[in-house]
Design a protein around this nucleic acid. Structure first.
Length: 252
DNA sequence: GCTCATGTTCCCCT
DNA sequence: CAGGGGAACATGAG
């Protein structure tokens, strides 16, 4: 699940732990604690959580808890002692409840970190919520290669994932295989407007909404059709990921 | 048994 | 150096 809006939802979940004392950290699966020592934040209080792209950052005393969710991660707030899920890998037990980092496939992980964030996250571009039209043009301007790969690149813009990129390309009526260098200013404008709309409308939902009128609403069907024009959608691998688009509206 | 999955990284080419 | 393709990571669902 986790793209920008999903992680934004986890940030809201994490906020329930803000201001609370960390009684203990249960490292159920050691392999998901990718850096730092979990017991070093016992007794500290969580601060207000932040999000940058697909990263969730929780201050805890003089440390930060960095979380990445891979493809199957999530975060839950639950009463202490209530039954845990099979894939709850790291649990932050607080007064009044516990924050549970769950991850089935074990991509991503948790860091208890006191050094430069970038050493864990790698270089990240601006969060997609903070890229205005002008900045978008600047970011894409110096770039060659395919559109899809560029928008998925977290170093360029942080937070967009496979579903969102397909969604915004479809909304902008631009082919995901398009070469950036050959896109008109007008098309890049349309891409920015689509990105902005998809991001804004997804944020409150906590996911890329599979709504009527969204590509995400139909892409998982066996024979999906374009919600606008009804053409049969294409599904192929682009930039290494399963990509859905409308061959009638998103021509090369 | 097989294929596919909303992410990232690393290696090898061009 | 910039990009692209493919494999790997780990685990489940269909």
């Amino acid at each position: 699940m986790p793209e920008l809006p999903d992680v934004e939802g986890y940030r809201r979940t994490a906020h329930k732990a803000a201001g609370r004392r960390i009684e203990q950290v249960d490292v159920v699966d050691r392999s998901l604690l990718r850096g730092g020592r979990a017991d070093s934040i016992a007794g500290e209080r969580f601060g207000d959580p932040e999000r940058h792209g697909k990263w969730l950052i929780m201050p805890a005393g003089d440390a930060e808890v960095l979380m990445h969710f891979g493809m199957t991660g999530r975060l839950d707030w639950a009463p202490r002692r209530s039954e845990r899920h099979q894939h709850d890998r790291i649990v932050f037990v607080c007064r009044g409840g516990e924050l549970r980092y769950r991850n089935m496939r074990k991509f991503g992980g948790v860091w208890v970190w006191r050094q430069r964030r970038e050493r864990v996250t790698g270089p990240l571009g601006p969060d997609a919520t903070e890229v205005d039209r002008e900045r978008f043009h600047e970011l894409l301007g110096g770039r060659r290669g395919g559109l899809k790969a560029a928008l998925m690149d977290q170093r360029l813009i942080a937070g967009l994932g496979n579903l969102m990129v397909d969604e915004l390309a479809w909304r902008a009526r631009v082919n995901p295989r398009a070469s950036i260098g050959r896109l008109s200013k007008r098309r890049i404008d349309r891409l920015w407007e689509a990105m902005d709309g998809v991001v804004r409308e997804s944020l409150p939902t906590g996911r890329v909404p599979p709504l009527d009128g969204w590509l995400t609403g139909v892409r998982d069907e066996r024979a999906p059709h374009c919600p606008r024009c009804g053409a049969r959608l294409r599904k192929e691998t682009v930039a290494g990921r399963t990509t859905a688009w409308c061959p009638r509206e998103q021509r090369r």
